[in-house]
Write a protein that binds this DNA or RNA. Structure first.
Length: 316
DNA sequence: AAACTAGTCAACCGCTAGTCA
DNA sequence: GTGACTAGCGGTTGACTAGTT
């Protein structure tokens, strides 16, 4: 199939920046005739431009519902979360940010967000930590300096310790902690997911940015976080048998949770009170009881003391 | 003050998918 | 079924600006 070129140079069509006069002509025409018929529009509107150029100019800059100016923090968070979900599908991302165009978001991503993520040690493509990939490299010290994500990252960097015994016990303790965290976070995450879903469905509108968290120990699975952005695309969400609201495989990384750019503290989630100490204790009691019922070896609660501190750090 | 560099973003390009005759 | 056309998408370019040397 041979395609007719949209913009024939021999017709003397203008390229480059639009003048205010051209903008006015285009706005005036579209106000009178509505959108569509882009191929024939330039001639009818008296513009020496190709239809494609006219459509782009209208879609990206002249449309009355376009929001200009700096991106807000909320918008930035939404972009990151939607990018984790959709990848470089800028139009899909733009649908989640009313008033913003795909082109604007794409530019903002490439010039601002991408750099910030890299600086924070997050791969902007996969949204996973760059640490694991780079830990073997000589750049590690520099990377570690630039990031604050090491504290709660359970990683093979344990090998840097000197005392083998302390090291192993520490690792064991961390794995145990991680397993414990996984259990609690699973419960809490489920609760959050339910809240989020009911709020979204209930209000039918966008919420404040919220997070749900599932933590697995390093020995089992990689850490897994799901993220509920503003205007979450509901058609991509499902509710599984356990009552969890789930989205397509998230690409959020373990480091992301410590990034204030990407995750907010629980205090900001917008569902106050559900994650209080009493709730965590109730959940803890409940699943420890389940372990007893399931003949699982139960560790005395006091041994979880450190784990509670870790949870505090985790959600801090 | 001039030259250079890096960052930003509007606009363009090439391509694909959908629609219609 | 085929081809012409339209709309829309993501990647890239290049003009402009701000900052640095």
């Amino acid at each position: 199939m041979v395609r007719t070129p949209c913009c024939k140079p021999e017709l003397g069509l203008k390229k480059g920046a639009w003048t205010p006069e051209e903008d006015q002509k285009l706005i005036s025409y579209l106000n009178n005739h509505g959108e569509g018929g882009w191929r024939t529009l330039p001639e009818k509107a008296g513009l020496k431009r190709c239809g494609k150029s006219c459509r782009l100019r209208w879609a990206n800059y002249l449309r009355p519902d376009i929001k200009r100016g700096e991106f807000t923090e909320d918008e930035e968070l939404s972009i990151i979360s939607l990018h984790a979900l959709h990848g470089n599908k800028w139009s899909d991302i733009a649908r989640g940010l009313p008033g913003r165009t795909d082109n604007e978001i794409k530019n903002y991503w490439n010039t601002h967000i991408k750099k910030r993520l890299i600086k924070k040690g997050v791969d902007p493509v996969t949204h996973k930590s760059l640490i694991s990939e780079t830990s073997k490299s000589e750049n590690l010290p520099e990377i570690l300096n630039n990031q604050n994500i090491i504290q709660t990252t359970i990683s093979s960097n344990d090998d840097l310790g000197n005392n083998e015994k302390v090291k192993n016990e520490d690792k064991k303790s961390r794995l145990s902690s991680a397993r414990f965290l996984n259990k609690v976070a699973n419960r809490v995450g489920k609760k959050i997911n339910q809240c989020v879903l009911s709020e979204i469905i209930g209000s039918g509108g966008p919420l404040t940015t919220t997070t749900s968290v599932t933590v697995d120990s390093i020995s089992d699975k990689s850490m897994n976080f799901s993220f509920t952005p503003t205007s979450y695309p509901l058609n991509q969400m499902t509710v599984n048998d356990n009552g969890n609201a789930t989205s397509p495989p998230s690409m959020f990384s373990d480091s992301s949770v410590n990034d204030p750019l990407m995750y907010r503290s629980v205090d900001n989630i917008g569902f106050p009170g559900f994650l209080n100490e009493q709730h965590v204790m109730n959940e803890l009691t409940r699943f420890l009881q389940e372990d007893v019922n399931n003949d699982v070896e139960v560790t005395p609660v006091y041994e979880y003391q450190d784990d509670f501190e870790e949870i505090g750090n985790y959600f801090a």
